[in-house]
Design a binder for these strands. Structure first.
Lengths: 250, 250
DNA sequence: CGTGCTTTTGAAAATCATCAAGTATAGTGG
DNA sequence: CCACTATACTTGATGATTTTCAAAAGCACG
């Protein structure tokens, strides 16, 4: 079980969130995440229409901005930082269902309520879209809708992979899979990885405790598959070996 | 670990699959799954266009028809029977990612390959659509595309629920959740459930062994939450109690 | 340079898996 | 209709991986 009393989850008083309601309509064209999942398919004209709907926000580290079960009033696009998506059980057990970095799109929801919660891990920049307005825009921009379907299909494939991990992989295999998954997104040189999230988040993502995660890091390190530098920086020393572990090859 | 040597997975010799390539264009209007996810949104005229693309198939029990990693050439709509969707590790460990009954849509895939395998549990009737042709039709039928997005969002929510189950719930809670999930689809009277899949499938779906699944059934039964009649028929005796267990309330 | 939080490490405990029979159930052929 | 077989399911004893509990070591921040 994983209790996380430190998580505030105080939705009645969302303090310190900064919103820019009247931002210029050209901020999208210069956006860090311009080539991201959503906006990448739009030309300059269409993206201006999208931009007119967007509100930019800054969420401070640790702050939640989507509550499980709440009315789904907005879509979000992450432009900076990392977000954790999760579900919780009444006694505090938490399952992180995904991490969302720059370019990731949030808010695909059934009916009208969110099926997950979201919190900023570090300081996060978001683009917020009113759900009904964006839905209306979808009718005019079939390319956008097509793209959304691709995103959903992609998320679905990832979710299935994660189910395999959670249901059938050992602790060591889970951590190896997690690192392999993180690798393609790495920018800081080949084989170098920065972990934006703490151990507790990794644990709740791959269905383990912090202690077992820590031990698994130790095993992978002692086997020469990875090198660890502090808690957040690491180096993949044996790519093929790590992939083999991740894929369940003994 | 769960080895399933009985699973044939012989893709080179797909025997006994029956296909009706030249079915009439009105079979959709009388289809059992007419109100299903996909077709439910189309009027009689549009559904005729869909029908012209459809091939009806019969897959015998135990037979596979989608292979993980294979080229995604078709979409499928289940019209009768139950399908298991799964992923496997090289050593035979299997994770079932979902069951698909009448009305369920299969084949949402990233890029051009399937990310999962599919097998008929009992004898299954399918509607098969050529992927490129259906994709082309999507451009003309925005309602269909909208619906597909809804289906995907729904699948995604289910997947997140399943991650919570696999990562954080106990054996007893997993089985209770599984049964609760099955309940709304039950047709055979209130509180009565028919389990179309064997214990091994339940085990590989909720990340346990057959033995633990069997014991969990025993626990729920001895607590008076369910009644068991044979292996496939059961009755929910305490709905609120079972839901409480499923939701992780002690 | 404490103070608090995160991470690591160690020992004990627990849940679930594995191994091993034994019991139903369904399908087959006499 | 009844053995007979094969498969599925259940039950029991043992064992292993992971969790839990506990404490020490690192690190960041005032």
């Amino acid at each position: 079980m994983s209790q996380h009393d430190s998580v505030p989850s105080d939705w009645s008083r969302p303090r310190r969130i900064v919103v820019h309601p009247h931002c210029g309509t050209d901020h999208c064209t210069n956006c860090d995440a311009r080539q991201s999942s959503l906006c990448g398919v739009l030309d300059d004209h269409d993206i201006t229409r999208l931009a007119s709907l967007a509100q930019q926000m800054v969420i401070p580290a640790g702050q939640g901005f989507i509550e499980d079960g709440a009315a789904a009033e907005n879509f979000y696009n992450v432009t900076h930082g990392t977000v954790r998506l999760y579900k919780m059980l009444p006694d505090g057990r938490r399952q992180i269902t995904g991490f969302a970095g720059p370019g990731h799109f949030l808010g695909l929801a059934v009916s009208t309520t969110y099926a997950f919660a979201a919190e900023a891990i570090d300081d996060v920049n978001l683009c917020r879209f009113s759900r009904p307005k964006l839905k209306a825009l979808l009718t005019d921009l079939p390319a956008l809708e097509r793209r959304l379907l691709d995103v959903a299909a992609n998320e679905l494939a990832l979710a299935q992979e994660q189910m395999l991990l959670l249901g059938r992989k050992t602790a060591r295999e889970r951590l190896a899979s997690f690192l392999m998954h993180l690798l393609p997104e790495a920018e800081s040189g080949p084989f170098m990885l920065h972990l934006p999230m703490p151990r507790a988040d990794i644990a709740d993502y791959i269905g383990l405790t912090v202690e077992t995660v820590s031990r698994s890091f130790g095993w992978l390190k002692s086997e020469g598959l990875i090198g660890i530098d502090g808690a957040t920086e690491l180096r993949v020393r044996d790519m093929k070996g790590l992939r083999a572990v991740a894929d369940g090859v003994h």
